[in-house]
Amino acid sequence: MKMLQEFREFAVKGNVIDMAVGVIIGTAFGRIVSSFVSDVVMPPIGVLLGGVDFSDLVYTLREAVGEEAPAVVISYGRFIQTVIDFTIIAFVIFMAIRFINRLKRNPPPVPVVPAPPLEPSAEEKLLTEIRDLLKAGR
Results as ranks from 00 to 15, higher is better:
residue 7 F to A: 11
residue 14 G to K: 15
residue 16 V to H: 00
residue 17 I to L: 15
residue 18 D to I: 08
residue 19 M to E: 10
residue 20 A to W: 02
residue 23 V to H: 01
residue 29 F to L: 15
residue 31 R to Y: 12
residue 31 R to V: 09
residue 32 I to S: 05
residue 34 S to R: 12
residue 34 S to M: 14
residue 34 S to H: 10
residue 35 S to K: 14
residue 36 F to G: 13
residue 39 D to A: 13
residue 39 D to I: 00
residue 39 D to K: 14
residue 40 V to P: 01
residue 40 V to W: 13
residue 44 P to T: 03
residue 44 P to H: 01
residue 45 I to E: 04
residue 49 L to W: 07
residue 49 L to D: 01
residue 49 L to T: 10
residue 50 G to A: 04
residue 53 D to F: 02
residue 54 F to W: 05
residue 54 F to N: 02
residue 56 D to R: 13
residue 56 D to M: 09
residue 59 Y to F: 15
residue 60 T to H: 03
residue 61 L to I: 15
residue 62 R to P: 00
residue 63 E to G: 03
residue 68 E to S: 11
residue 68 E to Y: 08
residue 69 A to D: 07
residue 69 A to L: 09
residue 69 A to P: 02
residue 70 P to L: 09
residue 71 A to N: 01
residue 73 V to D: 12
residue 74 I to E: 02
residue 74 I to C: 05
residue 81 Q to C: 05
residue 82 T to W: 11
residue 82 T to V: 14
residue 83 V to F: 14
residue 85 D to R: 07
residue 86 F to Y: 13
residue 88 I to K: 03
residue 89 I to Y: 05
residue 89 I to M: 15
residue 89 I to L: 13
residue 90 A to P: 00
residue 90 A to Y: 14
residue 93 I to A: 09
residue 97 I to D: 11
residue 97 I to K: 11
residue 97 I to Q: 10
residue 99 F to T: 13
residue 99 F to K: 04
residue 100 I to V: 14
residue 101 N to G: 01
residue 101 N to F: 03
residue 104 K to D: 06
residue 104 K to P: 00
residue 104 K to E: 10
residue 108 P to F: 08
residue 109 P to M: 08
residue 109 P to A: 09
residue 109 P to I: 07
residue 110 V to Q: 09
residue 111 P to V: 09
residue 112 V to A: 08
residue 113 V to N: 08
residue 115 A to Q: 08
residue 115 A to R: 07
residue 115 A to F: 00
residue 121 S to L: 07
residue 121 S to N: 03
residue 123 E to Q: 13
residue 124 E to F: 01
residue 125 K to G: 03
residue 133 L to P: 01
residue 133 L to Q: 08
residue 134 L to D: 06
residue 135 K to E: 13
residue 137 G to D: 00
